[in-house]
Amino acid sequence: MTEDRSSWYVALAGFLAVLALACVALMVYGEWFDRRLVASGAMGVLLVLYAAIVVLFRKARLTAEE
């Protein structure tokens, strides 16, 4: 019943993946310029984004139940 929505979920996941890339950039920046709290915060956001992507993939039926 969520057929039409799954493409939307994938698009959202894609967007979050781009954000995650930005977080990687922030992590490098933080480490390089000694702004370590920025780096670790970006790491946290990255992990949360990954969690969200996993959920979205599941909701889009790209992954199955374990």
């Binding site: 946290g44 956001v45 992990l47 990954y50």
Partner: peptide, 12 residues
């Protein structure tokens, strides 16, 4: 993933 991420965010 989420819990670790949340802890990193809070700690920062």
């Amino acid at each position: 993933l989420f819990s670790l991420g949340l802890l990193f965010i809070l700690a920062s």
